[in-house]
């Protein structure tokens, strides 16, 4: 009886640890989302102080990554998780790497925003960039929601939405080239905006990666680098977790 109690307690505190680590990942995700939002706001409103603030705050994201990383190492060392628990820990380790990179991209956007604030604003006042940023922010947000809800089907849907981001980035690049050809004096500014677009496109890819980890976590299948037809299961073939 006593032994049963101990094992019960043991597994419950293990569960709590897993819940806590998941919670920390999502807190970090919230921080990254906020950084991205502020960076874009700084760019669109031409607020160089806000851009600098985003650059300054990037260390918070980095610090969280390190602490979650340690937490995962400790769980692996002490608990030796198996099956679903192990997949969760692995997915967490990968997710925070991607989130940290998203944070770096947001920092880059903040830096560019501070620099662009002193330049002449383009005619469309970054409307195209804002649109791309909205798409990417929604993608990141939904990816983190999928992570919270362990929703693999929704995650697959989010993965496909990354194509829209790529198409938008393509259009933005083409537009940038046109503007530069029309008026070479804008080259410097447009190059900076293109860097912002590039950073946003990268964030979209990171969000996609996070979704793929969610699928891995739930189904135990690695869907990275597979085309849609090669997927081992469609959205309809639901629960075949090993």
């Amino acid at each position: 009886m006593a032994q049963q109690d101990i094992s019960h307690h043991y597994s419950r505190s293990f569960n709590e640890e897993l819940g806590a680590v998941r919670n920390h990942v999502l807190t970090m995700g919230g921080l990254v989302e906020e950084q991205l939002r502020l960076a874009i706001l700084a760019l669109v409103s031409g607020d160089s102080d806000l851009g600098d603030q985003v650059v300054r705050d990037d260390h918070k994201v980095n610090r969280m990554e390190v602490s979650i990383d340690e937490e995962c190492s400790r769980i692996i060392a002490l608990r030796q998780p198996t099956a679903g628990d192990l997949r969760l820990v692995m997915a967490v380790v990968k997710t925070i790497t991607d989130l940290e990179r998203v944070g770096d991209e947001a920092e880059k956007i903040g830096y560019l925003a501070a620099r662009l604030a002193s330049e002449e604003r383009p005619r469309d006042s970054y409307r195209a960039l804002q649109h791309l940023a909205d798409l990417v922010a929604a993608l990141l947000h939904d990816a983190l929601d999928c992570f919270a809800r362990m929703d693999a089907e929704e995650a697959m849907a989010v993965v496909e939405r990354d194509e829209a981001v790529d198409a938008e980035y393509e259009a933005l690049t083409r537009q940038g080239i046109t503007i530069m050809m029309e008026d070479p004096r804008t080259i410097r500014r447009v190059l900076d905006t293109m860097w912002v677009g590039r950073a946003l496109e990268r964030i979209g890819d990171h969000a996609k990666n996070i979704c793929e980890y969610v699928v891995y976590m739930v189904h135990g299948k690695d869907i990275r680098h597979l085309s849609r037809d090669e997927l081992p299961f469609g959205p309809e073939a639901g629960n075949e977790a090993p």
Binding site: L26, T27, G29, G30, L31, E33, L144, D145, A148, R149
Partner: peptide, 18 residues
Amino acid sequence: KGDRGQPVDNLIRDPVFV
């Protein structure tokens, strides 16, 4: 409705709120 049992700060992640 399916989010029952989920810590609320997993889904509302605004740093100020958290």
